[in-house]
Amino acid sequence: MGENQKARIATTSLAGCFGCHMSLLDIDERILQLAELVVFDKSPINDIKQFTGRCDVGLIEGGCCNEHNVEVLRDFRKHCDILISIGDCATMGGIPALRNTVPLQECLDEAYRDGPSVHNPSGMIPNDVELPLILDKVYPAHEVVKIDYHLPGCPPSADTLWEALVALLTAKPVELPYELVKYD
């Protein structure tokens, strides 16, 4: 990227909780610095729904739990030079992946019919063409597309995200200090 040209960043939250996005916002006043460095393309932060062009960096929060996640992730891979998994859900599936050792039907029955906190006299499991089909299990992002960097954590700390982004945007190697790579 040229010196006067700002880097384009896109972000998304797949099967995540938006906690990683919150953590990104936790960089506090450094967000002003970030705004100097980048311009946001498709992202829930600015509510841009479609890519407007090629991006330098894509940040992926969350793994893939349904077919829509897969499409979005593939779209990100297509449009971004560098793709980063941020947070444990993207890097290993995270909390949603707790269902991965249980057959899908059992999961749905527990969630919508038999669970101790469920009241569902009709026994209906939500099913509408608008609802993306759920995958057999939750996949970490790198099992679906190639991922260039992983920043684990639940969520990764604001410092972790900041340091990694600054390194990338200033063309320095992403080498985080010991305290910034954590899985919790």
Binding site: P103, I134, L135, V145, K146
Partner: peptide, 24 residues
């Protein structure tokens, strides 16, 4: 894989169970 997709991931296979449960 095309466009950086992982060929080891098979979307058709991974939605099979849901297709049969949802009936679509």
């Amino acid at each position: 894989g095309p466009d950086g997709q992982r060929r080891g991931f098979d979307l058709a296979e991974s939605v099979k169970a849901a297709e049969s449960i949802a009936g679509r």
